[in-house]
Nucleic acid binder design. Structure first.
Length: 742
DNA sequence: TTAGGGTTAGTG
DNA sequence: CACTAACCCTAA
């Protein structure tokens, strides 16, 4: 425990503050979208995209927020057929993928899902028609358009327009894309109300005059949201009762040999709280907020969370919050049950367990209710949430077509991951972004050490390299987009976009680019992105790692896309980063070293994985389920990833922030890397082979230890491998034996 | 599904 | 061009 506790504490100020920033910008982005200020929206998403690259204190609702941002960015650019977020897809098709992920993560009523989906499809068809892209319109119509009887008429009309090559028709003029955007926003808002960001609360509390007016957001709706959300602080569905926490804690502490009792932790937490209270008595709420981020200080909270985190970062985060909230805030704003709270407080230490537990429960309920939309679902969600799907793809080795995106995605991911770790402190503008690898690595490593939790994506970062990229930069025109929009797009897009280089903002967007950066070092991201081949990024999941040159993409992309995998996918192990050969080698070696040495310990895989077999999911379920409440977190969360990254000198592994892990977010994210930006070009590359990451090798080793040699399928399903088949595992094992890595 | 030989992409 | 890790193919 102490270990974990220390790790927790290692949450850097940057992680915490970035999270505040993240919450704030998401809030602002939504407000901007609502106000139809799409330029501002793209600016905010661009900031978010960059922010996410940095180390962030992953939080439970981070994934949800990112998904919402992703969805809206795609919607926002849905009328631009020349943009792509995921390789072959149009922005709206990407939006459909994101929608699927969202629906998986948060239980969305089937009817609503259908409505939204249908609206997107119809809009897409109309966009294609208006743009004279009849072939594409036809494809969309055939592929996505519902066959429902009530839509038959519309479908026929579209078919007729396509046949006649008519790009103008009253129907096409009736619907405005702007309305569609707002409808989609309404959907998102119905689904998830973004809580008032901590920074805003702070500002308000500080008596800052301008705050109340809250510029951007200010719509009444927002306010409502805010108020409602304020308490939660963002956690979408964070509700864990003390009891459940204790259960989880018990299991995990046993598993990891933690000697500190739950009660002790609680006591400490309370003490801290008291101290805090004294300091900030005047504003309980504020306090609340603080606690949220304070986990570091709160020993108890931290520990617990940490434990949990290993499995599921999100969960942990949520847990932390909840606990803290309940316990700490006696009379919270929402304090539904004053009584409850009170007791908690009083009961100090020893009794606290019992009393608090009991107390909590009630509180919980109330809380739950408060949580708007999500909460109701939440309970059910947990289960529903997609699990680990991720692995699905694994098997497809099919020929990957190398969708670029995947690569690009990878790139993005890498960027984030690495960057996260890396400290490139200042990334001032884009240029800085290109972090020098070495720095990164070192930093990364250090970080890794500190916080093992992060999952490390192993390798990550690798090399820079080589990508030769072909760069296809098509010309994307992005013409119309407003500049701001451009920014986003640029990221991924090609150089063309780059045009906007000047604008700072744009530069930021391109985290994705990272690889190229490295290599070339382009200074500006923009460039980077452009160069990079098309990195689309986007969605692609897993990816490409390997090599630099090849970006392989595993095709899986499709899968991923289709499935939730991407999102949920836990972590793609290898991650994006493709490693160059040399890197690879080093990696492997290093990894091995690590592994061998004890690497396991190092990696902490241990911690993370509950050990049990499939860790990820299981853990999660364990934890949460006990209460029955799950968090909605979902997907991301699901993907648990534990691992750590070994860092080895040579190898670069990236670790990702926890939330990333969560994410699946990221991983998914990773995919998500592309979060908001789109690329326009699509280039195709051939696929290449995917090198094995340290992480993957670790899993494999662990799997063999656990299940024995030959049980490849079991091993594969017990770990979040993405894009790996049992045969791949077997082959890798063979190689490892050959190399004496094992 | 797995084992194991053959093939191929990626490197130097 | 040789090597090697990843990947493919196929019998069992």
């Amino acid at each position: 425990m102490s270990e974990s506790a220390s790790k927790v504490r290692s949450l850097s100020d940057e992680q915490i503050i970035n999270r505040w920033g993240f919450d704030y910008y998401v809030f602002k982005a939504l407000s901007a979208f609502r106000d139809a200020d799409y330029t501002a929206f793209t600016h905010f998403t661009s900031i978010i995209e960059n922010l996410v690259v940095r180390p962030v204190d992953g939080h439970s609702d981070m994934i949800v927020k990112l998904r919402c941002m992703q969805f809206l960015s795609r919607i926002n650019n849905g009328d631009k057929l020349d943009l792509t977020f995921e390789e072959p897809k149009t922005p709206l098709e990407s939006a459909l993928s994101v929608l699927e992920s969202i629906c998986r993560d948060m239980s969305v009523p089937p009817r609503e899902q259908e409505c939204v989906k249908q609206a997107i499809i119809e809009t897409l068809v109309m966009v294609c028609l208006r743009g004279g892209e009849f072939a594409r319109a036809e494809e969309v119509l055939l592929r996505h358009f519902s066959d429902a009887a009530d839509l038959a008429g519309k479908k026929k009309l579209f078919e007729s327009l396509i046949r006649r090559r008519r790009s103008s028709h009253s129907v096409l003029q009736l619907s405005s894309y702007a309305d569609f955007k707002q409808d989609m926003l309404d959907f998102i808002e119905r689904l998830y109300r973004v809580p008032e960001p901590f920074l805003l609360q702070m500002l308000k509390r500080s008596g800052h005059p301008g705050v109340s007016s809250e510029p951007v957001t200010s719509s009444s709706q927002d306010r409502q949201k805010t108020s409602a959300a304020a308490e939660d602080h963002g956690s979408v569905s964070a509700r864990l009762s003390l009891r459940s926490l204790r259960q989880v804690y018990g299991v995990l502490s046993e598993r990891y040999g933690v000697s500190v009792s739950f009660t002790q932790l609680q006591q400490e937490l309370e003490q801290e709280e008291e101290e805090q209270e004294q300091e900030e008595e005047e504003s309980p709420e504020l306090h609340l907020a603080l606690t949220e981020t304070q986990p570091e200080t709160a020993y108890a909270g931290m520990t617990i969370s940490r434990l949990v985190q290993e499995d599921d970062s999100q969960l942990s985060a949520e847990e932390e919050e909840e606990t803290q909230i309940r316990i700490v805030v006696p009379s919270g704003p929402d304090s539904d049950d004053p009584e409850v709270q009170t007791p908690v407080r009083r009961s100090d230490t020893q009794n606290s367990e019992c009393s608090s537990a009991q107390i909590c429960t009630p509180a919980r309920h109330t809380q739950k209710h408060n949580r708007i939309v999500l909460s109701s679902d939440v309970e059910s969600e947990g289960p529903a949430a997609s699990p680990p799907a991720s692995r699905c793809s694994s098997r497809h080795k099919q020929q990957q077509k190398k969708s670029h995106h995947s690569e690009s995605e990878c790139v993005m991911m890498e960027v984030r991951c690495s960057s996260a770790q890396v400290s490139s402190p200042t990334r001032p503008s884009s240029s800085s972004q290109a972090v020098r690898r070495s720095d990164r690595d070192t930093e990364r490593q250090s970080r890794i050490l500190l916080s093992s939790d992060v999952e490390s994506e192993d390798h990550a970062a690798s090399p820079p390299a080589s990508r030769r990229s072909s760069r296809h930069k098509q010309q994307q025109k992005k013409s119309d987009l407003s500049e701001s929009e451009c920014v986003m797009m640029e990221v991924r897009c090609s150089s063309a976009q780059v045009s906007s280089p000047a604008r700072p903002s744009s530069s930021s967007s391109s985290p994705a680019v990272r690889r190229s950066d490295r290599d070339t070092q382009r200074q500006s991201r923009i460039l980077l992105s452009g160069d990079v081949e098309s990195e689309d990024h986007a969605a692609s999941p897993p990816a490409s790692r390997r090599s630099s040159r090849h970006k392989q993409q595993q095709k899986k992309s499709d899968l991923s896309v289709g499935e939730s995998a991407p999102v949920s996918t836990p972590a793609r192990p290898s991650s994006p980063a493709s490693v160059t050969r040399s890197d690879r080698d080093t990696q492997n070696q290093s990894s091995e070293m690590e592994v061998e040495d004890g690497g396991s310990s190092v990696q902490h895989s241990t911690p993370a994985r509950p050990s049990a077999t499939d860790a990820p999911r299981q853990n999660r379920s364990v934890t949460v389920s006990s209460e029955s409440e799950d968090h909605s977190l979902s997907p991301a969360a699901q993907t648990p990833r534990r691992r750590s990254s070994p860092s080895s000198g040579g190898a670069h592994r990236r670790r990702r922030a926890r939330w990333q892990d969560v994410s699946g977010t990221h991983e998914n994210w990773s995919d998500e890397e592309s979060l908001f930006s789109a690329t326009s070009d699509r280039s195709s590359k051939k696929y290449s082979r995917k090198m094995w990451t340290v992480q993957e090798s670790e899993w494999l080793k662990e799997g063999v230890q656990r299940f024995g040699v030959g049980h490849w399928e079991k091993i594969r399903s017990a770990f979040p491998f993405t894009g790996r088949t049992a045969v791949n595992l077997k082959d890798r094992w063979r190689t490892m034996l050959k190399l004496r890595l094992v």
